[in-house]
């Protein structure tokens, strides 16, 4: 799953520190953080890269809302997914088709 919950916790306590644009403390730049933001939220970054982004957004006043923005967007998509299921009739129909197919296959 995507690391939203962990982030949410994290940002409850810290978050709006000083905006430090770039390289002190070896922090990645805003540009760098922005570039990796989706991959970060999708849980697709390698550990080191993930930690770099995490550390940046924790401390950067400019990137924090950006992260929140993307997160609210992705949450809304996930929440919109209807948990629709195939009807029992469809399941029946398909099982019958498969049974027929088996019958045909073996003479």
């Amino acid at each position: 799953m995507k690391p939203f919950d962990r982030l949410r916790k994290l940002f409850g306590s810290i978050g709006r520190g000083e905006h430090r644009d770039g390289a002190d403390d070896g922090m990645i730049s805003c540009e760098e953080a922005k570039t990796r933001l989706f991959e970060f939220l999708d849980g697709e970054l390698a550990e080191i890269s993930h930690d770099e982004v995490e550390r940046h957004v924790e401390l950067c006043k400019a990137c924090y809302p950006r992260l929140q923005f993307e997160r609210h967007f992705l949450d809304a998509l996930q929440a919109a997914e209807d948990r629709g299921t195939a009807s029992p009739e469809l399941k029946d129909r398909i099982l019958k088709v498969l049974a027929k197919e088996s019958a045909n296959d073996s003479f």
Partner: peptide, 11 residues
Amino acid sequence: PEGAFFKSIVD
């Protein structure tokens, strides 16, 4: 700034 409006949009 944090895109809270996304939450108001119906599914």
